[in-house]
Design a protein around this nucleic acid. Structure first.
Lengths: 126, 126
DNA sequence: ATTATGTACCATGATTTATAATACAGTTAC
DNA sequence: GTAACTGTATTATAAATCATGGTACATAAT
């Protein structure tokens, strides 16, 4: 279920955080579905339980999942406009950054098309 | 010449690094133009000379500037394809990230247009 | 010579990330 | 109720990164 890059400069807990969001948005994890327990996931990917717990706590803080003591952690409904806006805000920063380095709008749009094309081809179909 | 956000989570040396690149690409700093000395810029923005030195060394490593002991640091020619590719590679990462969060290509393109429009209006004209 | 430049150290402190080891509180199943 | 599982909290430690302070050296311009 999980692949983590221990050599990446991106913190492990952040990689877990991102991965869960991807799985939730892609539908691989559906609403109210239970996530692996903190200890199991930690053992699975070979990291400390505290690291997984940190990821889960961040996910809960951002309403991606909800956790219940004694029961576990579950995907919550993902119709959060706040989350969408946060994502777009991050994207805007990247566009501004790229623009300031002299890259044109058309060039950026072409990259977007290329990336979406590649994703479409790589998708698994039901 | 410089505005640095000491409270930002982005390292100071990285802010300096980014700012110099922006000024070089926008033409505010032109080819072979001399930059403020490490010590002067440090005093100017209220940071440690070592921090400025680190930014300058990164800039030199990426061929944005060149430094000569006893003389100073200067803008080098900015026709580096390598630099352009590095910028686009970063942008691609952001697009992929945003896509995985369920944002459509069209939405991203609209944001690009909006940002470029705002920039055009905000520009200073000669 | 004096002054200004970039560069190179070394030590220190703060912050962040990750680990390790416990412990506590709540739930489920027996 | 007991055992085994959940999330959560705490404390300690280690490593890496960031920034500062201070000192020193080599080079260049005057």
């Amino acid at each position: 279920m999980f692949s983590i890059d221990l050599t990446s400069r991106i913190p492990i807990y952040e990689q877990i955080y991102n991965k869960i969001i991807e799985l939730a948005i892609s539908g691989t994890l559906s609403e109210n579905e239970q996530l692996p327990s903190v200890r199991n996931l930690a053992k699975d990917i070979g990291v400390n339980p505290n690291t997984v717990a940190k990821a889960y706590q961040e996910l809960e803080r951002n309403k991606i999942i909800y956790s219940v003591q004694g029961r576990g952690s579950f995907i919550s409904s993902l119709d959060s406009d706040i989350f969408r806006e946060a994502t777009l805000s991050e994207f805007d920063k990247s566009v501004t950054f790229t623009m300031k380095r002299g890259i044109s709008a058309d060039t950026m749009k072409n990259r977007i098309d290329t990336i979406f094309e590649a994703d479409k081809k790589g998708e698994k179909h039901d």
